[in-house]
Design a protein around this nucleic acid. Structure first.
Lengths: 193, 193
DNA sequence: GTAAAAAATTGACCTACATCAATAAATAAG
DNA sequence: CTTATTTATTGATGTAGGTCAATTTTTTAC
């Protein structure tokens, strides 16, 4: 629980009592490597804070291509926001890439928390705005960078995540085939020839 | 002011008095077509609600390529979130594409508003989360769709914006050259030959 | 209403990245 | 330890979309 409490304290000012109230609204859940915590079509009735492990949050096109929106390691949040808020079918899949542990809250419990502790609203506003800034960067990168630039940008931005995922996953994140990513890496190592 | 008040009422429950308090924190500003309300490098000290007109929010690469993040027409918000929140230099440009009117609030006034009227925090959380969902869709589109699919997706998603912008602007939004967009449009009209 | 500027179209050619197919290397499972 | 499975690499060839240059159409400004 400590990692979660210090995450909150860093972002909003709360009393120990409120901190207890917030964190006790969450339940710790174990997720085995490769298992899905959400599939497209389901209603996403949870929002999770990753205590330990690694997840990929992705979209599957009708013809089966996978596009990874982001990877979530320790201190990241996982949910299908639209599905969670509007109680509509999810568009996204969330799958564990390692054995993981997540603090989970349901829609109803979160609403309750908003009523009981008004600062929580601020926490989630701040989080959502930060996520928005990151997404804007990704849109710019996806539209304007070459594959090599996107690759180097990812390594640079997420040095903690990079060593924990396979090339196949990375390729799906930056939007190229695994073959082309392999060629990119060689080119970066030996720029001549 | 009516458009702004009804926008708020649709999203959070407030008394008439609170509604008055919120909207009176904003100042109406006129922005001439082609003029910039923000340039990269400046500190963005405002957040604006578009009452009338049209803006483009974009990024310029070091070699001068323009990438449009979004268009803001009536009822959209304009700001460089990172710059506004952290008081750091903006990365984005915001320019009027038509003669426009915007309700503006400063950083300090917004903080004041959060203190005086706690529901406002909720309004901005909801907004930020909705923006986040839209951004996620754009990331998926940018990585996985062809240029033609992105073009048709834009028309379909933003039928109100589409007729108000030039092809050049649209090309910069979907991430292709104006020449290629022109070919796409012809291809869609006459699929044979 | 006319000149000037901006936007849109078209053609010829080029390049970043995809696809398909075959190995090779690394992990996982019994 | 050995086999099966997943992951990474390499080659040959194809295509979506870019670049540069010229022309036409539309919009803006006086």
């Amino acid at each position: 629980m400590e990692i979660f409490k210090s995450y909150i304290k860093k972002r909003i000012s709360v009393t120990e009592e409120q901190l207890e109230q917030i964190t006790s609204s969450y339940t710790l859940t174990q997720v085995k490597k490769k298992s899905f915590i959400l599939r497209a079509g389901e209603i996403c009735n949870f929002e999770g804070f990753v205590k330990k492990g690694c997840f990929k949050i992705f979209y599957l096109t009708p013809n089966g291509e996978e596009h990874i929106l982001y990877f979530a390691i320790e201190e990241w949040w996982i949910s299908d926001i639209a599905s969670f808020n509007e109680q509509e079918p999810a568009q996204l899949y969330i799958q564990a890439l390692e054995d993981s542990e997540v603090f989970i809250i349901s829609r109803e419990q979160k609403e309750q928390l908003f009523l009981n502790c008004t600062q929580v609203e601020r926490l989630f506003r701040i989080m959502a705005q930060r996520a928005q800034v990151a997404s804007q960067h990704r849109i710019i990168a996806a539209l304007g960078f070459t594959a090599q630039e996107r690759y180097l940008d990812f390594i640079n931005r997420y040095p903690k995540i990079y060593p924990r995922i396979s090339s196949l996953q990375l390729a799906s994140y930056i939007g190229v085939t695994q073959e082309f990513l392999s060629r990119l890496k060689r080119q970066i190592l030996k720029p001549n020839k």
